[in-house]
Computed example of a mutant assay.
Amino acid sequence: MNHKHLFYFWQVAKAGSVARAAAAINVTPQTLSGQIGLLESSLGTELFARQGRNIVLTEAGKMALEYADELFALSAELEVMIKHHPQGRPTEFRVGVSDAVPKSLACTLLEPAIRGEQPTRLACREWQLDRLLAQLAVHELDMVISDGPLPPGFSVRAYNHRLLDSGVSFLVAREQAAAHAADFPACLNHLPLLLPGEDSTLRQSLQPWLERKRIGARVVGEFDDTALMATFGLRGVGAFPIASIAEAEFVASGELAVLGRTTEVQVSYFAISVERRLTHPSVLAVIEAAQRLGNPPEADKSGPN
């Protein structure tokens, strides 16, 4: 079997379209179609079937995709293991950071990776999780740091490595804090709220807690980017939640204060990698940095800090 033909099939199967796959890997649709035709000829069966204007996998195609997923995941793992063997340390560490991860936490986790014995160049990309996972799938990234595990149904084999857990703190502009902090969490009924976007794991964990506490949240803004949400909070637009472990980043200037904290809502951070057994020295440095982080502040304390 020609593995180049199999790679082209794999790209089309993941993209769901010859045109999208061709654009992603910078070849012409005609080349892709021709190479897949050769693969089908060598296997003696069709891997795709037409369904209106779309193409779908045949039963043989679905089977081939399962094997291709595993083959290319193992290939990536082999490359990492050989390339980053102790005798050949990496010169570049390519990391994707979900935009829901606080900047200070990302820095704390990643800094040890570039302060090791051998010089390492950090290439850090911040984007939405689905875009970063797409880059991880084609081995453009070594690791993704996210506020949640690998989503169900992701087509390429990858592995979750839990980094740490944190409770949640609610912050507000300091001038608003004194009037509201004494009766946390009931005070959230009287403040406009800024919340992470609906796809955020923090938002999904927070919603049931708000309902249990009978808090009728008046949501005035939703944000995919934590830093942007905090900027609106800083300007007095509303209170907002962040992981308690990153609290110091936001209150350091003295312009924001803590309304209260809870451990009833948990945020978990993960490293997502194509490595089943972690060997990449920079990834190991991130895991060790997470293990060294202390516990977040105690729960359910009120008052400006």
Score class of each variant (00 low, 15 high):
293 L>C: 03
26 N>V: 05
125 R>A: 09
64 A>F: 06
220 V>L: 09
291 Q>Y: 05
140 E>R: 08
265 V>D: 08
79 E>A: 15
281 P>G: 10
33 S>K: 14
102 P>T: 04
118 Q>H: 13
245 I>G: 02
210 L>D: 06
164 L>E: 09
19 A>K: 14
207 Q>E: 14
82 I>E: 11
149 P>G: 12
172 V>N: 03
260 G>E: 10
301 K>H: 07
114 I>V: 15
27 V>R: 13
197 G>M: 00
55 I>H: 05
116 G>W: 12
302 S>L: 02
91 T>V: 12
177 A>R: 01
142 D>C: 05
140 E>W: 00
47 L>P: 10
286 V>T: 14
110 L>G: 10
200 S>D: 14
29 P>V: 08
283 V>Q: 15
107 C>P: 00
194 L>W: 06
3 H>N: 13
13 A>F: 04
147 D>M: 07
294 G>F: 03
255 E>V: 01
97 V>Y: 02
149 P>Q: 02
101 V>C: 05
217 A>P: 05
47 L>S: 08
265 V>E: 10
276 R>Y: 02
178 A>K: 07
259 L>T: 13
265 V>K: 07
288 E>S: 13
34 G>S: 14
192 P>M: 08
19 A>W: 11
126 E>P: 00
85 H>R: 04
60 A>W: 09
83 K>Y: 08
63 M>D: 03
230 A>Q: 08
202 L>A: 09
213 K>E: 15
183 D>S: 06
52 G>A: 11
184 F>M: 10
148 G>Y: 04
11 Q>A: 13
47 L>H: 03
22 A>C: 10
68 A>N: 01
271 A>M: 05
95 V>E: 02
239 A>M: 07
103 K>V: 15
154 F>Y: 13
272 I>Y: 06
148 G>C: 12
248 A>W: 01
104 S>F: 03
219 V>T: 14
185 P>H: 13
120 T>H: 11
15 A>S: 15
198 E>M: 09
138 V>L: 00
88 G>M: 03
49 A>C: 01
261 R>D: 11
124 C>G: 01
110 L>Y: 09
254 G>A: 11
273 S>I: 07
172 V>S: 05
27 V>E: 11
95 V>Q: 01
216 G>L: 08
107 C>Q: 13
127 W>G: 06
152 P>T: 00
195 L>D: 02
78 L>W: 03
41 S>Q: 15
238 G>F: 11
174 R>W: 11
103 K>N: 15
237 V>L: 10
92 E>Q: 12
251 V>H: 05
